[in-house]
């Protein structure tokens, strides 16, 4: 039975407990950051930040909207990053059968920086990051060690508002739909993002283009076509 996350951004207070818990659980070091006129820091995912809370603000019809989005890998049902990984270095990207977690293994070190870049670009949400120090491809690992030990992922465990939820996919889908129905009363434009193709389902209150670009990157027109294109490209490169 695959697992899934349901992330209800209408409850998120951007406390960043999840962002910090993720680092702490993985004993990740930090990247140097600067204040750039936003609370969002580090600006994007890094090899030591598998989770970043995004802050987007708008004034729409005189009303202020501050949109929070705790970003992480979506653990796609049919992960494009795996399609590519399998082609380059089989076993570099695996999908855990029991949980559906998409995981990058030690073997990902065998991927060239360029291959890593390709994989990142084919990810509909631009998630994977190559760790220049270890050579590994990195991203959220669903806290697979915790989950296999019967615990909740670190980010879910720390979230006190009910924004982060984790469990059996079926339960999460049901919870997502129930929540959407409720949230729609206050936010008529609320929707679930790509619920069928991902195991990390986000509920957003505004149209998706009001969020940062990788939340809004629309995968449908891109997927098959882009995938084929991408496959040809490296072959060409190898040939050339």
């Amino acid at each position: 039975m695959p697992k899934a996350f349901f992330i209800d951004t209408s409850r998120c207070t951007a406390c960043r407990g999840c962002q910090v818990a993720c680092k702490e659980w993985h004993e990740h070091g930090v990247v140097p950051t600067l204040q750039r006129g936003t609370h969002q820091n580090p600006p994007e995912l890094t090899p030591t930040n598998f989770k970043i809370v995004h802050f987007d603000e708008h004034k729409i019809d005189g009303r202020i909207h501050w949109l929070f989005f705790p970003e992480q890998c979506r653990h796609c049902v049919n992960p494009p990053c795996k399609d590519f990984g399998d082609m380059y270095v089989p076993g570099a990207v695996i999908q855990d059968e029991a949980t559906g977690a998409v995981l990058y293994t030690e073997k990902s070190k065998e991927l060239t920086p360029e291959q890593c870049k390709d994989i990142k670009e084919l990810c509909p949400y631009l998630v994977p990051r190559r760790d220049e120090k270890t050579g590994m491809l990195t991203k959220c690992d669903m806290c697979i060690d915790r989950v296999q030990a019967g615990m909740q992922p670190a980010c879910v465990k720390t979230c006190c508002t009910g924004a982060m939820n984790f469990g059996e996919r079926e339960e999460m889908v049901a919870l997502a739909h129930k929540s959407l129905e409720k949230v729609k009363k206050k936010h008529p434009q609320a929707s679930l993002l790509d619920e069928d193709s991902v195991n990390v389902m986000y509920l957003v209150t505004q149209p998706r283009d009001k969020y940062f670009e990788h939340a809004s990157r629309d995968i449908k027109p891109l997927s098959r076509q882009a995938f084929l294109q991408k496959i040809i490209e490296p072959v060409r490169r190898m040939a050339g």
Binding site: R16, V20, K23, H28, V30, Q35, G37, H39, N41, P42
Partner: peptide
């Protein structure tokens, strides 16, 4: 605490 300073690094 590095993870916290990373998230809020400077006076604004």
């Amino acid at each position: 605490t590095p993870a916290l300073l990373e998230a809020e690094p400077q006076l604004y």
